[in-house]
């Protein structure tokens, strides 16, 4: 028996919005420590890693580890029907082929029940090693979304280069070039506006805009986003989900065309 109750169903809705661009379906691995999902997009260029701790739920029970394979578009439909501030309870029997969602409205005496068929997904799991990153950039998530959106107009890829002066995002294409530089700014009054750069070694990596843009769909989850970079290692873009866990994206770098 699996049962997880989340006071604010909107968080789950935001998570779905943040991943359904990259993934068509996902296997939610449920254990007593929480719910996890790891999946690559179809092109195997990026990976989504979601971790929701059991402590973060209002009520959590998982007797046996189980995998809930779901079509994310269908799941989004279910959550779309939930109202703002609804409480959601996710339930599944141990060997069931369906999962049920119950939404309880905060103000009204209204309970909606949805049952969805589970899928048997045969997904590849990647072993992600621990990496000592050369640069870790923490910045406002809205700022990240903005920069990526703006630079995407100039080219297909964005070069992120981090030095001790700060972090520079640049793109170039047929119409010209664009550069955005951010220096470290620590704002004590509004911590979420701070840009914090932890640099061991300067790094310059190139990434495809398309994916960086998809990651920005997670902006509503968190005020801040963390970019971790290391030479020849995939970029990690992490959104912390307050009190519940995190949503991480991994993105393989591009090899610059003119390198040799």
């Amino acid at each position: 028996m699996f049962e997880a109750r989340l006071l604010n169903s909107a968080i789950f809705k935001k998570v779905l919005d943040a991943i359904k661009d990259l993934l068509n379906e996902g296997s939610f691995d449920c254990s007593d420590s929480g719910i996890q999902l790891q999946a690559m997009d179809n092109s195997h260029v990026s990976l989504v890693s979601l971790n929701l701790k059991s402590d973060g739920f209002d009520k959590y029970r998982c007797d046996r580890n189980l995998i809930l394979g779901m079509n994310l578009a269908s799941l989004a439909k279910v959550f779309k029907s939930s109202g703002e501030g609804d409480t959601v309870t996710i339930k599944a029997q141990d060997d069931a082929d369906t999962v049920s969602f119950m939404f309880e409205a905060k103000k009204q005496d209204k309970i909606s029940d949805y049952e969805m068929k589970l899928m048997n997904l045969d997904q590849e799991h990647l072993g992600i090693p621990d990496t000592e990153f050369s640069c870790i950039i923490k910045m406002p998530s809205a700022e990240y979304a903005r920069i990526i959106r703006d630079l995407s107009q100039f080219g297909e890829s964005i070069v992120i280069s981090c030095t001790k002066e700060g972090v520079k995002f640049s793109a170039s294409g047929d119409i010209g070039t664009g550069n955005v530089k951010l220096a470290q700014t620590i704002n004590f009054d509004k911590e979420e506006d701070s840009v914090v750069i932890d640099m061991q070694e300067p790094v310059t990596l190139t990434f495809a805009c398309q994916y960086l843009n998809s990651f920005a769909k997670a902006t509503p989850l968190s005020n801040q986003v963390t970019l971790s970079m290391c030479d020849n290692v995939p970029l990690v873009v992490e959104y912390e989900i307050p009190d519940l866990g995190y949503l991480r994206y991994y993105l393989a770098p591009k090899i610059e065309e003119d390198e040799n």
Partner: peptide
């Protein structure tokens, strides 16, 4: 276009 795949970095378990 020089795009690498994630599977080149992380082994499929």
């Amino acid at each position: 276009n020089g795009q690498q795949k994630l599977t080149e970095f992380f082994p499929v378990r």
